[in-house]
Write a protein that binds this DNA or RNA. Structure first.
Lengths: 212, 212
DNA sequence: TTTTTAATATTTAATAATTGACAAAAATTT
DNA sequence: AAATTTTTGTCAATTATTAAATATTAAAAA
């Protein structure tokens, strides 16, 4: 097998390729060259070819890339050719926003449960699901295959929840809590730290201020 | 002036340093060495020192770093020693989640307006603000200094809104719409593409599956 | 006060990522 | 059918990032 390690930088660019190819497809464009895509995406053609060739030879010399084929291939690489069962821990504003986001289910990311510890909202509906007491989480995990758990709870609670997930075989955690989770290495944690993101923005804004 | 270009990789690590230092401060720890912080953060001590020395000499040989001082300094570097006026375009679930998130206002990120085009929710309250018709956005921007605009609208609408912001001098856009905005170079766009993030997670999950 | 230890700042080296260049292959044109 | 153009895949060169090693300083100990 081809055992070259793919760097995280490359992986992070794949969804963007996927998005641009999807747009091309929607516009009825059937082929594209790396240089044309390069102009659209504002990255070098060399990088596009280099990135894609990490995963296979998808292009044809003198022709370019077939949009539909490449779109499909990148989809497969990204693991979008299967379904994922997801649950949400934390049914606050963010949790509700996520469970109601239609693009996820369209792509095979299915929410099958949502949990909270706030008695006042337990029993309410969110995204077609009934908010359950987080005390039932462990039992739920034993009866349902859950691939990805979304953590949208305050950071103080996250360390208690994380082991319950790990113990029950959840392999992916999409972590919106502002804390670094420590998990076994076969459990993937993808962080979305909104606070970090807005701080990066404020850094760039003040840097700009300084330079004028 | 010290004119070394700071790489984006370094900048992206600053909020994490800031968070760890804040935690230390909360725990009453007054000093820390790079090697101790290294163990906590699971990065090399060398990288910590290298990163910090991009911005100044904050440590003392034989002592380490004063936690409070370093925390303050990184805060200043990140531009957290001032206030930002923010508005939200798109008062859907995500917009409401953001406007209600208490950590932002605590840090000086103040929401002063929220807009939507959906007649049904215009006039409702969200995070203490009244949801305004997006048609009033232009007028609002002329009467209020807005530093950062949050775009939490469908991607199809984002290209119409973005020029209104730019025209009225908004210098920061926190973009949750799944599209790459084209703005002048003095306008900073910080993207949060949740779809990309979950795809990165699914990539890693399927990669793990393949390797076992 | 002197010596030892701790820990940074900084230089140097190693590693990784990106870009540029070009031969090879396929498509298109003459 | 031959010549020309397009465009990939891949190698080589460059640039950027990260890690290690060294020199220097200050604190603590003797």
């Amino acid at each position: 097998m081809d055992e070259e390690k793919i760097s995280i930088a490359v992986v992070k660019r794949l969804p963007r390729y996927y998005r641009y190819l999807g747009d091309l497809l929607d516009n009825g464009i059937t082929r594209i060259s790396s240089s044309e895509l390069s102009r659209k995406m504002h990255i070098t053609a060399s990088q596009i070819r280099q990135d894609l060739n990490k995963f296979g030879r998808f292009g044809q010399r003198g022709y370019g890339y077939n949009v539909e084929m490449l779109y499909e291939e990148i989809g497969k690489i990204l693991g979008l050719d299967r379904e994922y069962n997801m649950i949400i821990i934390g049914a606050g504003n963010l949790g509700q926003a996520l469970v109601n986001y239609p693009n996820f289910s369209r792509r095979g990311f299915k929410f099958i449960g949502i949990f909270d510890k706030n008695e006042k909202i337990i029993g309410n509906k969110a995204g077609g699901l009934t908010i359950q007491n987080v005390s039932e989480l462990d039992g739920f995990l034993k009866n349902n295959r859950v691939d990805i758990a979304v953590l949208s709870i305050p950071k103080t609670n996250a360390p208690q929840i994380s082991p319950i997930l790990v113990k029950n075989g959840v392999k992916g955690i999409w972590n919106f809590s502002h804390i670094d989770l420590r998990t076994p290495e076969d459990v993937i944690v993808e962080n979305v730290h909104l606070t970090d993101s807005v701080m990066t923005l404020s850094y760039k804004l003040s840097e700009m201020d300084n330079n004028k």
